[in-house]
Amino acid sequence: MTDDGGGIRTRGVRRAFGTVHAVVDVELEARPGRVTALVGPNGSGKTTLLLMLAGLLTPDAGEIRVAGLDPVTRGRAARARIGWMPDVFGTWESLTAREVLLTVAAAYRMTADDAARRAVELLDLVHLTELADAPAHVLSRGQKQRLGLARALVHDPDVLLLDEPASGLDPRSRVDLRLLVRRLAAAGKTILISSHVLTELDEMADDAVFLSQGRTVRSQSVDDAAAERRAWRIAALSPRLLADWLTTAGILAQVDTDGTALVELDGDEAAVALLRDAVAADVPVVSLSPAGGALEQAYLRLEEERR
C-alpha cells in the first residue's frame, strides 16, 4: 500500500460488539500539522474508533490508514508511529512517574540512556519533575492524566490519539495542554483529540469531525463552524431599551430574564452590522459575544437537526 503522506484516514469503518453497533460508518481525515477534534456524545463510538486507530481492535469493515499504514496488517510498524492516550488511565500504581516512562520507553525498544534522558524531558514537559520519584498512586487524577500524556509521547510519535485528555485537568493544566498540543501540531504531528467538552476544543482544534451513533455526521474546520449561523448574546445597560430596539428593528431575539438577548447571526460580519446598528440607535450596549463555542453550537444544531 502507498504512503499517502501520513495523517489519519478512514473510510466506511464499522465495528460491532455482539449486537451493539459501536461504530457504523466513519469517514475521517486528520492531516499532519493540524489538530482534529473528534466530537460526539457519550456512546457515539469515539473510543471504539480510537482503539481501532491505535491498532488494538480490528474493524469489521472499512479502511484505516494511520501514518500511511494499515494498523491491522502492519500493526507494529504503525504502532511505532502512534502515541495513544486512553480515556481510562490505568497505571501501575506502585511505580514512580519516572519508572512508568522508563518502562514504556523500554517497551518501545529505546536504549537505557535514551530512555532516561527522554523521561527527564517529558517529566519536565508535563510539570511532574517534582513528583518524578513519587509512586503513581499519590498522584491526583489530573497529574495521572498528564503522566498519561507523557507516556503517549515517549517514542516521539507522528500521530497522537488523545482520548479525553483534558478530563480531570485544572485550568492551568488545560492551558498547558492546549499550548502543548498546538506546539506538537506546529512540529508537523497529526493530532486527533476526542472530547465531549467542546469549549476546550474550540481553542485547540483546527478541524472537527462529528460523530453520532457511530456515524460521521459532519466534518468541517473550526473556522467554518465559527462562520456559520449561530447564537450571539447581546447585553445592554437598559434591558428595556434593548428589547424595544430589537422589536422595532424587527430582529428575532430571545430576551432572557437577566435582560440579555440571544440573536441568531450569520458569522462575524453580521455581528459587526448588528452592533453598529444598535449603537447608532443609542442602545447602551455593553457586550456582544458568541453564546458558547463554535463547536458547541455546531454540535447542538446537529443534534437538533437529527431529532
Partner: peptide, 12 residues
C-alpha cells in the same frame, strides 16, 4: 516551557 523535546536517537 512547552517546548517538545525531540526523542532520543534510538532507531526503533
Amino acid at each position: 516551557g512547552t517546548e517538545v523535546p525531540p526523542s532520543g536517537a534510538t532507531p526503533q
